[in-house]
Amino acid sequence: MDSTPLHNAAVAAFLQDAQVLLARSQECLQHLELIANDPDACHSLTTALDTLAHRADALGLLEVAHYTFALQKLLAPTCAQQHLHGSSLPALDACLTLLDWQLELLDPQTGELGMDTDEQRLLLGELATSLGQPATQLCADCQHTGVYCAHPHTADNGIDSPEQQH
């Protein structure tokens, strides 16, 4: 990852924007806890996560980008069908809390995040189960090494299948 001053400034700007997007996502969750399946709250939530994922991806912040893309990819069909309620909301809250931790622990100078992917997979799996969807999977190399590989995922707003990645 590039550690030039220009990149450092870009990471710092990203972290400010990411906090705003995360706050918007958490407000949407609170709204959904009060008014189940609200289409505006769902749309705002998925849009905020998609924007955050694309910005992280553009800077090469792969851990944040992959996790946020996977989270958004799980939520999008559920929101489209207006089925985001009940037991899925605490699971979503846990996912957003982990995203908050990732943003807090991201090195503002280098953009590096020294976390393994186990908790990400666990929380995404719990959310998928609560949404009645198959558990989100990382590619085989990511699962094996615990380190994200470079995925050409921005074309479909999600994590590609292993055949498309490598």
Score class of each variant (00 low, 15 high):
Ser3Met: 10
Asp50Thr: 13
Ser25Arg: 08
Leu15Met: 14
Glu163Ser: 15
Gln30Leu: 13
Asp160Glu: 11
His83Thr: 15
Ser87Met: 09
Gln82Glu: 13
Leu113Met: 03
Ala76Leu: 13
Gln137Val: 04
Thr47His: 11
Trp101Tyr: 12
Gly158Gln: 09
Thr154Gln: 14
Ser161Met: 08
Arg55Ile: 03
Val64Pro: 03
Leu71Ile: 00
His166Lys: 11
Leu84Val: 04
Leu32Gln: 09
Cys139Glu: 03
Thr47Lys: 12
Ala140Cys: 10
Ile159Gly: 07
Leu92Thr: 04
His83Gly: 15
Glu63Met: 06
Ala150Val: 12
Pro108Met: 03
Thr97Lys: 07
Ala76Ile: 06
Glu112Phe: 09
Cys42Lys: 00
Val147His: 13
Thr68Gln: 01
Glu27Met: 11
Asp17Thr: 05
Asp116Glu: 05
Gln26Lys: 12
Asp100Thr: 11
Ala76Pro: 01
Gln72Thr: 02
Thr129Asp: 14
Ala150Glu: 13
Ser130Phe: 00
Leu98Gly: 03
Asp156Ile: 11
Val147Trp: 10
Ala41Phe: 10
Asp141Tyr: 08
Cys142Arg: 01
Thr4Pro: 06
Ile159Arg: 15
Asp107Arg: 01
Ala36Val: 05
His43Thr: 10
His153Glu: 11
Leu122Pro: 00
Ala18Val: 00
Thr145Ser: 15
Gln133Ile: 02
Ala53Ile: 02
Asn37His: 09
Ala94Gly: 07
Gly146Met: 04
Leu98Arg: 11
Gly60Tyr: 05
Gln165His: 15
Glu119Tyr: 09
Leu106Ser: 07
Leu122Ser: 08
Ala23Leu: 07
Leu74Ile: 00
Thr129Ile: 08
Asn157Gln: 14
Tyr67Ser: 02
Leu124Val: 02
Pro134Thr: 04
His31Lys: 14
Leu89Ile: 05
Cys142Lys: 01
Pro152Trp: 07
Leu89Cys: 06
Ala23Gln: 10
Met115Glu: 06
Gln133Val: 00
